[in-house]
Design a protein around this nucleic acid. Sequence first.
DNA 1: TTTCTCTTTACGGTTTCCCGTAATAATTGA
DNA 2: TCAATTATTACGGGAAACCGTAAAGAGAAA
Lengths: 221, 221
Amino acid sequence: MFKRVLIAEDHESTSISVRKTLEDLGIPKTEYTYYCDDAFMHIQKSLGDDQPFDLLITDLSFEEDHRKQKLSGGLALIEAIKQIQPLVKILVFSAETNPAIIDNLFKNLCINGYVRKARHDAKDLKKALENIAQYKTYLSEDLRHSLKQKNTFEFTEYDVTIISLLSQGTPQKDIPTYLLHHKIKPASLSSLEKRLGTIKDSLEFSKNEQLVAYCKDLGII
Amino acid sequence: MFKRVLIAEDHESTSISVRKTLEDLGIPKTEYTYYCDDAFMHIQKSLGDDQPFDLLITDLSFEEDHRKQKLSGGLALIEAIKQIQPLVKILVFSAETNPAIIDNLFKNLCINGYVRKARHDAKDLKKALENIAQYKTYLSEDLRHSLKQKNTFEFTEYDVTIISLLSQGTPQKDIPTYLLHHKIKPASLSSLEKRLGTIKDSLEFSKNEQLVAYCKDLGII
DNA sequence: TTTCTCTTTACGGTTTCCCGTAATAATTGA
DNA sequence: TCAATTATTACGGGAAACCGTAAAGAGAAA
């Protein structure tokens, strides 16, 4: 089992519960932080002291407050930590349900486990820890099926830009001006219309409103 | 302090943490449920046994699963309990931040405290319990100011219906048919356009996309 | 350079949306 | 009851979005 575990979780109550779960499993050295930047510094220091953590348990979304942070959330934290300690095990504990995001965590950031905050999350957490300790990956039961199907459209930066503009009330006809000004191309209204048409086509949407709602749900705008 | 407390919270990890907090405060008899219906039955039974709870700590949103529930969430639970035990103290522990919703809890359902799930929520919870025990009401620090200002547009059920339809891709021109079919009035395209115009006007929006994004953020669609 | 391909832009017709005005229906108050 | 007010619907002109086609431009390979 793990010897040294770091918890990055902004909600005090959740943090307490995770600590208790680790305690129940007999893990001696757990440390916890409420901010991503703190978590990163803990990892950094542990490497310097030659007493590295072997597991990070982290949330994805961290609320902003008066303390300004360099790392904007769990995703940024994981990316940063992978730079300095690539082999540290990572277990994400979050309420996120979007398969695309979770998929990305496993495939691109190579996390070792994902537990969704839900009814039986404490039990789930224990299972995940046991699995990861045996060099397996773990994913919450209820998410296992939804992950395989990935009929999600691959949004480019360009797409996100124009859909964001739409969601902010920019008329379609005014977007070319914006794109020109920001040196984004293609900039013409025609190209814009074509791109939006393609996106909606492949998602089987008919209206921009639908697309905006979808992207809001995905959290990409 | 309280003698008998019931916790209604679907997330196991959060429930554990709340229990621990109560334990720390020396509250002996705490019971917990993961479902609203169970919570209601606990209250009901406690009245029959003449050993009523004196505090309910409840979440607002409960996730649906295989067990079908009569009570759809914390709101419904509080309403139901107020029918059979009006004087029970109620502390809501939720991640909800929308001032209009929290305002409604205090003013219409007469809850005694609201603690938001956030960074210092465990400490907050303790403060709330101490305050409520002294017959005061409690609201998390960070929400105290936001409650007074309510410059949010008051969406009617009608509004939510039509904006939802838009977000699902229904063309505006087809909505009257839907409204007629569901016996919702006004049903005419003209009234629809007028209402949407009014909403967008008062929120200073110009496009439907903007409105859909806004309502997604509010979580009302 | 020339040709081929792919991307981007231009343009026109049609549909939908937007918004003002006027007519009609429902509601209210005396 | 009738008039006054308000809510709802009908209609029409103009703007924006949608969609297809064709032209222009960019880049790659021979």
